[in-house]
């Protein structure tokens, strides 16, 4: 018995799922009415169908804008280039926004769809928020004690599932249009950047526009900056205190 046979079969099978199936085909029994290529083909089409379906469910607004057939073509390519790295299928699609970016940059005819990258990122962040851990209430006593003890060296964190986005496209308006059943494909730059926060309140995923101070504070927190470093970013302005207060009030912060 060849002790490496199991590994060989699994390697050939996996390769066949994505590329050439010649090697694995010769290892499969066949019958007159069900050839080995067709037998293996069931697995190949099941894998593609499943991953493409997941991407459609995670990025429904992008799918609507691109059209089902176009989206499926892109999703199939994404599946080939980005196999799932987690046993949890809900984690599949993380790199889809950057994949779209690469695609759009490569093809001049897709230039008008640049906004899809940010829209896809919003959809992905909503997916992450839906499946994130529950938030832990911030104990103000502990919070104050930690601030006193650590002073400027304290490092805050954001509650699970909270993410921020900066965009120059009206993606919130687009997302809302989709929810109401209509969709706009011609999207123009907006004059000023929009800042968004995605979060989960109880079991409901939400997103809302935030101002630049809150965005900058949350970005610094995400980057694990100390309070002193954040104060430098804000040039010791009183706007920092106001921003911290707002973030605490929204229950987005933890220590």
């Amino acid at each position: 018995m060849n002790s490496q046979m199991l590994a060989e079969i699994q390697n050939q099978f996996w390769s066949g799922l994505k590329y050439s199936d010649n090697e694995i085909i010769s290892a499969i029994h066949e019958s007159d009415d069900f050839k080995s290529t067709d037998r293996f083909g069931v697995y190949r089409s099941n894998a593609r169908y499943l991953h493409v379906s997941v991407l459609i469910s995670v990025f429904p607004v992008c799918e609507k804008i691109l059209g089902n057939e176009n989206f499926k073509q892109i999703a199939k390519k994404y599946f080939n280039d980005n196999p799932s790295c987690s046993p949890d299928l809900n984690e599949y699609g993380e790199y889809f926004p950057s994949y779209l970016y690469g695609l759009i940059m490569q093809r001049a005819e897709l230039e008008e769809y640049k906004y899809l990258v940010d829209l896809a990122q919003l959809e992905w962040n909503r997916q992450k928020a839906y499946f994130c851990d529950d938030a832990v209430d911030l104990d103000m006593t502990v919070f104050q004690q930690s601030c006193e003890r650590m002073g400027g060296e304290i490092v805050f964190s954001l509650q699970p599932g909270i993410s921020i986005l900066e965009t120059q496209f009206p993606i919130v308006a687009l997302w809302e249009m989709y929810q109401s059943g209509s969709i706009e494909k011609e999207v123009k730059f907006i004059q000023q950047s929009e800042y968004l926060c995605v979060y989960r309140k109880e079991f409901q995923v939400q997103h809302e526009k935030i101002d630049a101070d809150i965005f900058n504070l949350m970005k610094a927190i995400q980057n694990k900056c100390t309070l002193s470093a954040i104060a430098e970013i804000f040039q010791k302005s009183a706007r920092l205190n106001a921003a911290i207060e707002k973030v605490i009030k929204r229950k987005w912060l933890k220590v």
Partner: peptide
């Protein structure tokens, strides 16, 4: 088996029925 080289198929892939397996 469902995974190989830390990639997941999310499908139930058949095993050969051997002593090794």
């Amino acid at each position: 088996w469902t995974s190989l080289h830390t990639h997941y198929s999310h499908d139930l892939l058949p095993l050969p029925y051997t002593e090794e397996a």
